[in-house]
């Protein structure tokens, strides 16, 4: 930058004496565009943290989330987000996010890689084996039980209703009753 590009000169010479407007702008600033302006799509969403349910606008470019903003249309939140809602883009783009299946074999000391389809197949086998071993047709008084206490579920409460619905439906059909979530806690 040359001496003449120094913002203080613009501030002294121009109309923006307080240096809060035009005087403070650089060529770089002028060249910038908000990520929200260049997005390919704006998708309507809801904050996944607390139960206030603030509206979100998700900005997407080239198949990636570039920004998440509060939705001013929402009568719940009027465009506002708290620190968690404002940070929610990092839930998606955080480089520490784990995106591959990890497997720890019994007594193992390290994680191993595992193919997703294989993992799903193995889990289905475990469910069926445990169910078989622990099935209860009746109790000692002959009352019908129709169930297994051999495996259980504990869910978070940021799951969608549709997800909980399929979970409850599947577990109940399998006879698993120890199905619980954060609401109990």
């Amino acid at each position: 930058m040359t001496f003449l590009g120094w913002p203080v000169l613009r501030q002294l010479a121009g109309a923006d004496r307080l240096g809060r407007g035009a005087a403070a702008r650089s060529r770089r600033t002028d060249g910038l565009t908000a990520r929200t302006e260049t997005a390919d799509a704006v998708v309507r969403s809801v904050c996944p943290y607390c139960a206030v349910g603030c509206g979100q606008r998700v900005y997407v470019k080239d198949g990636a989330v570039t920004q998440i903003e509060g939705d001013p249309d929402s009568p719940v939140s009027r465009g506002r987000l708290c620190p968690k809602g404002s940070a929610s883009k990092q839930l998606v783009t955080n480089p520490d996010r784990v995106t591959t299946v990890r497997y720890r074999r019994p007594y193992g000391t390290e994680w191993e890689e595992l193919d997703l389809d294989t993992a799903m197949d193995m889990i289905a086998d475990r469910v069926l084996a445990t169910r078989r071993e622990t099935w209860q047709d009746t109790d000692s008084d002959g009352r019908v039980l129709n169930r297994t206490l051999g495996f259980a579920h504990l869910g978070g409460a940021t799951l969608d209703n549709e997800e909980n619905y399929l979970a409850k439906k599947l577990y109940t059909a399998l006879g698993a009753i120890q199905v619980e979530n954060q609401a109990r806690i």
């Binding site: 139960a51 349910g53 409460a157 979530n181 954060q182 609401a183």
Partner: peptide, 18 residues
């Protein structure tokens, strides 16, 4: 009741509760 998780109300309505 101010509930702490996005859909904790939903997870009692469509319960994953025993």
């Amino acid at each position: 009741a101010l509930r702490g998780h996005a859909s904790i109300q939903g997870s009692t309505d469509i319960p994953t509760l025993f």
